[in-house]
Design a protein around this nucleic acid. Structure first.
Length: 689
DNA sequence: GTTAGGG
DNA sequence: CCCTAAC
């Protein structure tokens, strides 16, 4: 009873039955188990979206171009004076994210060391593209550039399915070219590497693809190839079924089992070992991700481990996992029966069995005609079927995406640099969390994320008429009207992720329009930037302040919630049913106060009651939220004020949190003791009865 | 559906 | 804030 006075409130209510005895319960760390390894449509979405995010994790160099290191700043006084009527409202209806090139990799390529890599660094330092993939790209590019240059009109996303090239496990050569389109010379060397050196050193493997002929060198026609946004090509492959998916990054200097040391049982699918920071840097640097096949007995946790090891920086990892809404979320893989789903049962024989099907040196080509692509493409598709029916991968090439519309208000006095940064942050945020990826098949939205590609019809055996991806604004992020009680979304300023460099082609920033503006409409960002360079202060002086004082950035869906379609969608599709992350809503001090008061009264472990008592009207606060907030409050109270971030919580409240927690912990302990005694008592009393 | 806990 | 297990 004395404690009441200490806490300064009316007292505690001891719960009748302390469910909180669970608090003593220690949970076994959840192990991700993989009992099946089909990839679901969700994973397809996630992979595409994840690739977008990986774009954001691009090199600092790309960031510089956005930050415009040479940006001048306005006078501080001007910055402080934020006048409503002076704000510029810029509406960027769409921005292209160009040349996202998810593409299949060869699942067999994971452990081979490229002779060319061993010999030197002719392909650069950090990139990693298998020769085979180079060939794939070549071929794909050839198809695109030459025969099937696929015009998608004004569509936001272009998806191309390239030829599928199957290879033996031994033909993996991984030279590297991350930051540029391969030049003819490099390509030529690549071909040589695959046809010559590798073949010499790989007795077991048939290194050759494409019928043993090096593909015709394709000129890197930049007029056809959209300007690269992130200066790299991420690759994605989707097993149609059967295999665990593991995201690995190939270390170019990794010396795993080389071609010169063939072993009877090779492990071509083994992921690269953890090698700590270096590996992480490689991942971030190369930004080359593979979705590799893994043996059936591998567990999905390995994927997580790879991520963890890949991102030694825990915060980075966490950001990917949750903080940045990294959409490549782990998803529990569907259970499946290997026998029933396997292709004639061959898959069940093991991974090593699969490459054997392709050893004959004939490439298995999967080509799926795109929307509007007919003729030659269909013949390719036929080829594909005749060549190989074993490879469970779907090959996709997404030419470009458009970022949904952004709405930006920024003071006139803001610097160009801050404008750039603002746009960057808006784009970053929308890519990070406010974006959904939709998959469209033959004009229809694929809604069931749990279906496999095979089930959905996105498979090698399918004549993919129209496979498309769309970027859709996340309504919870995009529309203020969807945030009842909340202010229009202010995009966070603390997103450290650099976006890929500003598109060199000003045309990529489409339809930059000006909202109520005193200035003439700005045709494109490039012109705007050039015309505003009259600042005097140093960029760093006022950079953050400019930024912070700009008006809220509101991500406005370009067409309401309509899809930015990659493929013509005839009917207006509803919002994607993909579970979307809720918008982050920091607790206000008043809410914290209410929470603390309720917990003081009810105790911890009664979050539903706390919710009903103090947050019944706050629909967006679930009892889980309250529990989590209490958790963070407790953590905040325990750390030093210097370590605290965000809006400072009054120390008085934090003290109350600590006191209440201490009290209720003691109560729980007491009640546990009582319970134990009650359980023991009857037994001990038995003799007396 | 709730709660605890890891992420 | 999400996800999962345990209840």
């Amino acid at each position: 009873m004395v404690k009441r006075l200490d806490y300064g409130f009316n007292g505690y209510q001891v719960p009748a039955i302390p469910r909180a005895t669970r608090s003593a319960r220690k949970r076994v760390p959840f192990r991700k188990r993989v009992e099946g390894n089909q990839i679901s449509a969700f994973d397809l979405l996630a992979t595409v979206a994840g690739t977008l995010l990986l774009d954001k994790e691009s090199s600092p160099a790309s960031n510089n171009s956005w930050n415009a290191e040479d940006q001048s700043a306005v006078e501080k006084n001007n910055v402080k004076e934020e006048r409503q009527d002076g704000d510029q409202s810029l509406k960027l209806e769409t921005c292209n994210v160009s040349e996202l090139v998810p593409q299949t990799n060869d699942p067999n390529c994971s452990s081979r060391e490229s002779p060319s890599l061993q010999n030197g660094t002719q392909f650069g330092v950090t990139s990693a593209i298998t020769t085979s993939e180079c060939l794939e790209r070549l071929d794909s590019q050839k198809l695109i550039d030459g025969k099937i240059k696929n015009e998608m009109g004004g569509l936001a996303c272009k998806v191309e399915t390239g030829p599928f090239v199957s290879r033996t496990p031994g033909d993996c050569v991984e030279p590297v070219s991350e930051n540029k389109v391969l030049t003819d010379e490099e390509l030529d060397r690549t071909n040589k590497a695959s046809t010559g050196q590798v073949a010499d050193k790989c007795p077991l493997g048939d290194p050759l693809v494409l019928d043993g002929k090096p593909p015709a060198v394709v000129s890197s026609d930049s007029s056809i190839k959209a300007p690269s946004f992130g200066e790299h090509d991420p690759f994605i492959s989707f097993p149609v079924q059967q295999y665990d998916v593991n995201v690995v990054s190939r270390d170019d200097d990794e010396k795993s089992s080389g071609c010169t040391h063939p072993s009877p049982i090779r492990e071509p699918f083994r992921s690269t070992p953890r090698i700590g920071d270096r590996r992480i840097r490689k991942i971030l640097a190369s930004r080359y991700w593979k979705v590799a096949l893994r043996s059936k007995n591998a567990t999905y946790s390995n994927y997580d481990e790879n991520l963890k090891s890949g991102y030694c920086n825990r915060s980075t990892y966490k950001r990917l996992r949750s903080g940045m809404n990294f959409p490549f979320k782990k998803r529990k893989f569907l259970h499946y029966t290997s026998e029933s789903n396997s292709d004639g049962g061959t898959i069940s024989e093991g991974i090593s069995d699969l490459p054997k099907k392709n050893i004959n040196g004939k490439a298995s080509i999967l080509y799926s005609k795109m929307h509007g692509v007919t003729g030659e493409s269909s013949s390719l598709a036929d080829q594909c079927k005749s060549f190989n029916s074993r490879d469970p991968h779907v090959k996709l090439r997404i030419k470009s995406f458009s970022v949904p519309e952004l709405f930006i208000e920024i003071p006139e006095s803001a610097t160009v640099g801050s404008l750039k940064r603002t746009v960057k942050e808006a784009v970053t945020a929308i890519l990070g969390g406010g974006l959904c990826v939709g998959v469209l098949l033959q004009g229809k939205k694929v809604r069931d994320d749990n279906k496999t590609l095979l089930q959905t019809g996105i498979s090698r055996d399918n004549q993919m008429d129209a496979l498309g991806f769309s970027l859709e604004p996340n309504p919870s992020h995009a529309s203020p009207s969807l945030c009842p009680g909340g202010s229009p979304l202010t995009l966070p300023h603390d997103i450290p992720l650099p976006l890929a460099r500003y598109p060199a082609n000003p045309g990529l920033v489409n339809q930059v329009t000006c909202h109520p503006s005193t200035e003439p409409c700005i045709p494109n960002a490039g012109n705007f930037i050039e015309s505003n360079n009259d600042c005097t202060a140093s960029p760093t002086d006022t950079f953050d302040k400019s930024t912070t004082e700009s008006k809220a950035l509101v991500a406005v869906p370009a067409m309401s919630v309509e899809t930015l379609a990659a493929v013509p969608v005839h009917k207006k599709s509803k919002q994607s049913e993909v579970a979307q992350r809720r918008i982050r809503r920091p607790f206000s001090i008043a809410e914290v106060e209410a929470l603390v008061q309720a917990v003081e009264k009810l105790g911890t472990g009664r979050w539903r009651d706390v919710k009903l008592r103090a947050f019944d009207n706050a629909k967006h606060r679930t009892y889980v939220d309250l529990k989590d907030k209490w958790k963070t409050l407790l953590h905040t109270a325990r750390i030093s004020p210097q370590q605290r971030r965000g809006e400072p919580v009054p120390q008085e409240l934090l003290d109350r949190v600590l006191n209440a927690h201490t009290y209720w912990s003691q109560q729980q302990a007491k009640q546990q003791q009582q319970q134990q005694q009650q359980q023991l008592l009857p037994e001990s009393c038995l003799p007396h009865i």
